[in-house]
């Protein structure tokens, strides 16, 4: 399968994502410049972290008007796999591809640390290699990762099992004390209703290469591979 890694001006995790796909997973991958619009050769698109357009106005607010975003919307409507990490998640929310918005961390601090994530749905493209209620370790690195959504949408997310990852303790307790940024219900990652678009604030690409101290990120990228090897399209 073929992965694409989108690069906006100010993206910074593109090289890490590229490395993981190419060297850790041994898959075909190409960069996609934000002005490109032809995504026909890709099976999965990654919107990496960073500070697209300097985070001016709001995180992701300017990036959503990049030419590539129209194509990404169509890509998502076709049911193809998209994963937005950190700034990529913010861009997907600003574009309306995912519900909600990421606002300033509760304590106003940029938080760069390892977090425990409770996996709450394993029946997805992105988590089929995980076990239900398993805790995986993935680092965060953000100042604006405080997920906010109105109550009605939150109920929808819960009802449809769209919450994939929640910040937790090492044994899976989801409580305020394990919430690094103030996100509603400790939400760290969600999928859209169809289940083909994942947005998450933690960085799975930073825990794939064992030299970096962990490999739990491979569970997420590996799940995508397994999904595609099981079924050609979904």
């Amino acid at each position: 399968m073929k992965f694409g890694v989108v690069v906006f001006p100010g993206t910074w995790s593109d090289v890490d994502c590229f490395h993981v796909i190419k060297d850790c997973l041994d898959q075909d991958v190409e960069y996609i410049w934000h002005k490109d619009t032809d995504l026909s050769k890709f099976d999965c698109i990654i919107l990496p972290g960073g500070f697209s357009y300097g985070d001016y106005l709001r995180c992701g607010a300017i990036a959503k008007f990049s030419p590539v975003m129209e194509s990404i919307k169509e890509f998502s409507e076709k049911g193809k796999a998209i994963i937005g990490i950190c700034n990529g998640f913010q861009i997907l929310c600003e574009s309306g591809i995912l519900p909600g918005v990421l606002i300033r961390n509760r304590d106003l601090k940029f938080r760069c640390e390892m977090t425990n994530l409770l996996v709450q749905n394993t029946d997805t493209v992105f988590t089929n290699r995980c076990d239900l209620d398993q805790v995986i370790q993935v680092p965060i690195s953000h100042g604006e990762g405080n997920y906010f959504v109105d109550n009605d949408t939150l109920n929808e997310l819960e009802k449809n099992n769209q919450i994939l990852f929640s910040y937790s303790s090492s044994i899976g307790e989801v409580s305020e004390i394990n919430n690094p940024n103030g996100s509603v219900m400790n939400i760290a990652g969600i999928v859209n209703q169809k289940g083909n678009v994942l947005g998450m604030m933690p960085h799975p690409e930073r825990v794939c290469d064992p030299i970096l101290g962990g490999t739990d990120g491979l569970k997420i990228f590996g799940s995508i591979l397994d999904h595609f090897s099981d079924s050609v399209s979904f």
Binding site: L57, A61, I62, F65, E94, G100, V101, F148, V149, D150
Partner: peptide, 8 residues
């Protein structure tokens, strides 16, 4: 469209 995010 741009200057504000109507969700928040």
């Amino acid at each position: 469209k741009l200057l504000s995010n109507p969700i928040i």
